[in-house]
């Protein structure tokens, strides 16, 4: 069975995962990324997901996925239990993003974090000219319904990583799934970072 192609932001995350790694995907949804990594890179994957139906789907794909909350449950994992810990498009939904980030680099030797860039020009335009919170392709839900409670820009994230003393091993800005060449904080709709302690 050929694995389905990944969503572009997930593909950027997947590209940073070495073959055969032990991987924890936090907020793994129905396990699309984990299944892809297992089938094409032979990783040993685990997942955490809040939604019961998504967990059922992921387990149905043969993945080891635990229903749980990244804000509270990461403390249960031992240090360096994984080669790579992934938090894709979920940091902004965390109650305590910095605490979660600290857990990521504790549990995993490397952390891959992707998030919608609130510094993207469309977001800026929406706020500056429209005076409204943005509703865009990567941020499709209105402010009062969104689970995203902690938005940041790529520059904000870099500042936090520096403040926490984390090493940024790689950073990629994506616009419509393609890597941007210049000014990622303005031109990228998504930031993908590889970090370590």
């Amino acid at each position: 069975m050929t694995p389905l192609p990944l969503r572009p932001d997930l593909a950027a995350v997947a590209a940073a995962v070495p073959d055969g790694a032990r991987v924890l995907d936090i907020g793994c949804g129905d396990g699309q990324l984990l299944a892809w990594l297992r089938d094409t890179k032979g990783v040993e994957g685990r997942g955490i997901e809040l939604d019961a139906e998504d967990v059922a789907s992921a387990v149905g794909r043969g993945l080891a996925v635990v229903q749980g909350d990244a804000d509270t449950d990461l403390a249960d994992y031992p240090d360096a239990a994984f080669d790579v810990v992934i938090l894709s498009n979920a940091l902004q939904a965390m109650q305590r993003p910095a605490a979660v980030l600290a857990q990521l680099v504790r549990i995993g030797r490397h952390a891959i974090v992707s998030f919608p860039n609130f510094g993207h020009w469309r977001v800026r335009l929406s706020l500056t000219l429209g005076g409204r919170m943005p509703v865009t392709r990567s941020l499709p839900v209105s402010w009062h319904e969104t689970p995203n409670i902690h938005f940041c820009t790529i520059s904000d994230f870099e500042a936090l990583a520096a403040e926490m003393g984390l090493t940024v091993e790689r950073r990629v800005g994506l616009a419509k799934g393609r890597q941007v060449a210049i000014w990622p904080n303005l031109t990228a709709d998504t930031g993908v970072f590889v970090l370590r302690r």
Binding site: R46, V65, V66, D73, D76, Y77, A81
Partner: peptide, 21 residues
């Protein structure tokens, strides 16, 4: 069940868990 899941995670055992409605 969560207590068991936590312990299995700490022991490094592959575990899936779901709470059904």
């Amino acid at each position: 069940s969560r207590r068991i899941v936590r312990a299995l995670n700490a022991a490094g055992a592959p575990v899936s868990f779901v709470e059904l409605e």
